[in-house]
Design a protein around this nucleic acid. Structure first.
Lengths: 232, 232
DNA sequence: CGCTCTATTGATAAACCTCAAATACAGTGG
DNA sequence: CCACTGTATTTGAGGTTTATCAATAGAGCG
């Protein structure tokens, strides 16, 4: 197995390993299993017992939550260098969300036993996980706030900007989102319907702020979106 | 006692200290400062640098977040045995929320230096904090989901049950919420307006499910609320 | 080149917010 | 104990946002 991680430019190093020695990191990584999933695979499913911790190396995971009535929300995207299913460290509790790959994706997985072992050896890992958890807590709390006080258009603008910051590349045409992102995905991420998202994107396209197609979005005027997100 | 409901995850005294020896706990507590606040005091304010970690002993904190346009949401209530401002453990980062006492409240506070010192001595504390953070993450994610897919009435029912589970006492009249809880508070907690909450509570009162007054609510038919929350 | 999945657009309706005005309540100081 | 005052609450009317439903068009794939 390759004991080296190739993070994309935005993630020079995993926060999960911050404060830990280069070669210690290699050892930790070697203690896990590297697995490659093709696009659309399900890594774990909401409600199943948590058994493994995952670190994304390449690609992306879509963390989503399903409601009783069948509606889905996207909790967040897990990008390279980030971990998920931290709850696996504690018990075989039910997983609170479902993880699916978006595009082909490489992850490293550890069983709970390994996590506990390496956390015993490197207590710093618990701190790093705590740190990450607090950041996600802040993130979701902000989105919760936005959801209650902002209009849909503003939330979609924020969502698109957020995703753009984490996973995009520039071309002559604009800033392209790196992965397939449907109207439905954006709706699930912002708590609205695909119809409303479609109308909003059509409107933005008419205004020349974005350029989009089937499951594909490129932002051509980020500033306009920022203004919309900030001022409502 | 047939009218009783089994709630999941019953509240235990201090999760923060779980797995730590009785007299070690005393030592840790002695290393902090006990402070008593009267009702309505502000312990810390959103945007200020985080300097202290707080453990609530008696009373309650209301954690809220303010939006640019002045609207407020209640992130959660911090009950006895729970900690808050865990972010203080890491840096003087900006606090993501504001904490105010609800009723007179006793807390124990530690400075960041003390937290780091005692976490060095008792690594278990980092694990416990992580555990708590993950539970809150799950809680807010669930509320986020509910916010997008459920109607207001259903969310208010859930909120009332959640609060009841954590802070209530029984009387002949019903299950009383232990602290002053206004329509506005419930609205801020569920992401709606005080008018809508008022209408809903009036309706429930007509149906005999609750009995309420100024900043006071008692649930007389919890089962009805559970049914409403579960089935929509 | 048809098949399937995604996106667009229009019409309609429901849920909920906003604003206004009246009423109830708790605490306070005489 | 009572009137007073500042909040909290109730209720109605009207408007807005956004969801829902239906029908059509477009894109990509084998």
């Amino acid at each position: 197995m390759k004991n080296q991680i190739n993070f994309p430019e935005t993630f020079t190093r995993s926060d999960f390993f911050s404060g830990i020695d280069e070669h210690e990191v290699s050892a930790i990584i070697r203690s896990g299993h590297q697995v490659v999933f093709k696009s659309g695979s399900t890594l774990f499913r909401q409600g199943m017992p948590a058994r493994k911790l995952y670190l994304v190396e390449k690609g992306r995971l879509k963390l989503s939550k399903l409601h009783r009535d069948g509606k889905e929300i996207i909790v967040r995207y897990i990008n390279p260098g980030q971990i998920t299913a931290a709850v696996a460290a504690f018990s075989e509790k039910e997983l609170p969300a479902t993880a699916q790959t978006v595009g082909s994706t490489e992850v490293i997985e550890w069983t709970r036993e390994s996590i506990l072992r390496i956390m015993g050896k490197y207590p710093r890992l618990a701190i790093n996980m705590l740190h990450a958890a607090l950041e996600r807590l802040d993130d979701i709390q902000n989105r919760y706030l936005e959801l209650t006080v902002e209009r849909v258009e503003q939330r979609v603008a924020r969502a698109l900007l957020r995703i753009m910051k984490q996973s995009s590349h520039k071309t002559e045409e604009g800033i392209h989102i790196d992965f397939r992102l449907s109207r439905q995905n954006l709706a699930d991420y912002t708590g609205t319907t695909l119809f409303t998202v479609s109308r909003i994107l059509s409107d933005w396209e008419r205004k020349g702020w974005i350029s989009s197609g089937r499951e594909r979005i490129a932002v051509t005027d980020p500033h306009a979106l920022v203004t919309l997100a900030e001022t409502g």
